[in-house]
Design a protein around this nucleic acid. Structure first.
Length: 468
RNA sequence: GGCCACGUGGCGGAGUGGUUACGCAGCGGUCUGCAAAACCGUUUACACCGGUUCAAUUCCGGUCGUGGCCUCCA
């Protein structure tokens, strides 16, 4: 099987072919660092993390995900708090990295920041001006959309259609209503850089074009991001980069769907956001990650408490297999990734199908668990390898069951925490009662533990416990 | 108004021109001192109307509905 990806540009699934194998270049639009990431922001990070893991199996991947640290929303936040923008961006870049790590997202190979590529941005704008694709007007530099005949190819709309639906006032200095800003002037109180067009700062779209070229190449294999970036952001990137580089900008455009709250898009402007760090207080990072992977990446995902609960239970099932097989932590595992998992992921990153393959392995393993320990261990190792491929099942199963969430999903379910040593002591006491066939006393201890969210499981090797 | 998705069983969610998705929940059973876990079995699915076809949930057209983009947004 070969990798196929849905290419937004052609609106169909296509077989992936690298421009210059074994090298593959991938650029994904990363965060603008001015606030805490919400679960919707986490989706592309997780999805492209899975794609990156898949690509690394067969290619020499160069994966860049930018950090936008110059932006008017950052400026607004900095002015409001009376601090330098660097304080805001440093803080939230750190928060983003922490939250993504908690979700099992491996850092990309490169995380370029806009402020570190101002020279590249200014050079790129200069090239566009020289080529006649951009012009200066009232301190601004604008991209001339009519100069790029293929404009609208990604979002599948003509300039005429866009004008019909335009809801924004057209700035008077624009030669064409569709023209967009590459560089804009900064006043004395706003952060700015010296340029041939005066002190100013970059517009929204140019930084990705500049960093993709600086960090990867003039022509890249895969460009990813959320569906809301298709227009205007990615459309404008194509215009800038194609004109400046005289080359196809990106061969495959991959866009993830939104995370919704009650079927409505989660967005900062609507205020209906669920922060990753708040979710991490209620559930393990792997459960949140599995929740994000439980629907196909292009489908909308309705984020609910039930979704998260089901994700956690599914992981409980998988870890139950690993525990029975006494596998321990993931490090050092040499098992091959199951072919079904690879096949599912190669089919346009079909993560629900990959999870189905894991469930099938778990069932087979459980079936074998009583009669054939060797088979159990073999299947469990496959399950683990498939899970790790998805960024899951990396923990020691014992830790998974003994370390509950720091807070329950529902505050009403709050139960007083209990020390491991206390639990172990109570369990030993219960064992004595059971030896003496005093089941009433034994059951009282179980109820006592239950009240603390602890479940006892009696097995052939004695009793064990786990946190719900 | 333009463009684009989507509408699957109690819920979530894949997929396919003719064969069990899978997960969660429910019900029955095996196991267990009782449980839990696990396993086995099980419950009315493919919005509606036409068309193509030997055969459509799957292809085509229409209707209705939901959502997204067209403006900062993953």
């Amino acid at each position: 099987m070969a990798l196929t990806l849905y290419n937004t540009f052609n609106r169909r699934k296509e077989r992936f072919e690298a421009l210059a194998p074994p090298r593959v270049t991938m650029y994904v639009c990363g965060p603008t660092v001015y606030s805490y990431p919400h679960i919707g922001n986490a989706r592309p990070a997780v999805v492209f993390d899975v794609l990156a893991r898949l690509l690394r199996r067969t290619f020499d991947l160069e994966y860049a995900r930018n950090i936008t640290d110059v932006d008017d929303k950052i400026n607004a936040a900095a002015q409001e708090q009376g601090v330098d923008i660097g304080e805001i961006t440093e803080h939230f870049a750190h928060v983003y990295a922490e939250d993504m790590r908690a979700l099992g997202v491996a850092p990309p190979d490169m995380e370029p920041r806009v402020t570190e590529h101002m020279d590249d941005i200014i050079r790129l704008i200069g090239e566009l001006v020289d080529k006649g694709n951009a012009y200066e007007a009232e301190g601004h530099v604008l991209f001339s959309v009519p100069s790029f005949a293929a404009y609208g190819g990604l979002s599948n709309r003509s300039r005429h259609e866009m004008l019909a639906g335009a809801r924004v006032e057209v700035a008077p200095y624009k030669q064409d209503p569709g023209d967009f800003v590459l560089w804009k002037p900064s006043d004395a109180t706003t952060v700015g850089w010296d340029s041939p067009w005066g002190r100013g700062r970059p517009g929204w779209h140019i930084e990705c074009s500049a960093m993709a070229r600086a960090k990867l190449d003039r022509s890249i294999d895969i460009h990813g991001g959320g569906q809301d970036l298709i227009f205007p952001h990615h459309e404008n990137e194509i215009a800038q980069s194609t004109c400046a580089n005289d080359a196809q900008y990106a061969r495959y455009w991959v866009h993830n769907g939104f995370v919704n709250m009650e079927t409505e898009k989660m967005s900062k402007s609507l205020g209906n956001v669920l922060l990753v760090r708040d979710l991490l207080k209620t559930a393990p990072g792997e459960a949140i990650r599995l929740g994000l992977l439980s629907a196909h990446y292009r489908q909308p995902l309705n984020w609910t408490e039930q979704l998260l609960r089901e994700a956690k239970k599914r992981l409980d099932g998988f870890y139950g297999v690993l525990l029975a097989a006494e596998l321990g932590p993931a490090a050092g595992s040499t098992a091959e990734v199951p072919a079904e998992v690879i096949a599912a992921l190669e089919d346009d990153i079909n993560t629900p199908q990959a999870l189905t393959a894991l469930s099938a392995l778990a069932r087979q393993a459980n079936r074998a668990s009583d009669s054939d320990k060797g088979e159990l261990r073999r299947l469990a190792a496959l399950l683990r390898a498939g899970g790790v491929m998805l960024g899951l099942l990396k923990q020691n199963p014992e830790d998974w069951f003994k370390r509950g969430p720091t807070a329950p999903l529902n505050p009403d379910d709050a139960k007083p925490a209990m020390e491991d040593s206390v639990i172990d002591a109570l369990l030993a006491e219960r064992e004595r009662h059971r030896q003496e066939r005093d089941f009433e006393a034994a059951d009282r201890i179980r109820e006592q533990l239950e009240a603390h969210g602890i479940v006892i499981e009696d097995g052939p090797g004695g009793a064990s416990w786990r946190r719900k």
